[in-house]
């Protein structure tokens, strides 16, 4: 089936004017499937440790996969974390609990707005609406420890060596 104009336009814009800290690149053989990378927002446990000794500031880079179903934009894109992450709203399989990806989806939203929402979710975890109950529980009981764990996981899984 031909790719709808809207997807072509969105892709063109994503590539031409990328959102800072976010990249989304479509697969050549399936233009509905995107490889996504989101930088952990600064001041968050997902930022990743900063090595001043090295030439680069290493940042937590989280890989995600995004798929646009056939009736996109009437249904939301399907999106999932590939990088392991310790976050109350992301479960073991990488699925994300975000209202705009479910009930609050609107066909006027776009890939870029969704990715921005996910980045924002990293900066503001919401343990009251959890998808991973155990993570949420530890988050509520001992936030400092949970944040330390999140930092550790980020360093281990999301910071390129």
């Amino acid at each position: 089936m031909a790719l709808p104009k809207r997807i072509i336009k969105e892709t063109e814009r994503l590539l031409a004017e990328p959102v800072p800290g976010i990249s989304a690149v479509p697969h050549e053989d399936n233009l509905r499937y995107f490889d996504v990378e989101i930088h952990g927002p600064s001041q968050s446990p997902y930022e990743g440790e900063v090595h001043f000794a090295v030439r680069y500031r290493w940042r937590g880079i989280f890989k995600l996969e995004l798929f646009l179903p056939d009736d996109y934009p009437m249904t939301p894109p399907k999106i999932r974390f590939l990088t392991k992450i310790f976050h109350p709203n992301v479960d073991k399989l990488g699925r994300i609990c975000l209202d705009v990806l479910k009930n609050n989806w609107s066909p006027a939203l776009q890939i870029r707005t969704i990715l921005l929402s996910i980045q924002a979710l990293l900066g503001a975890p919401n343990p009251d609406d959890p998808l991973a109950p155990d993570v949420a529980k530890s988050w509520k009981e001992n936030e400092q420890a949970a944040i330390a764990t999140a930092r550790e996981w980020t360093q281990k899984h999301a910071v390129p060596n």
Partner: peptide, 8 residues
């Protein structure tokens, strides 16, 4: 003149 849904 573009529709916010189909972007055409």
């Amino acid at each position: 003149l573009e529709c916010p849904i189909c972007r055409t």
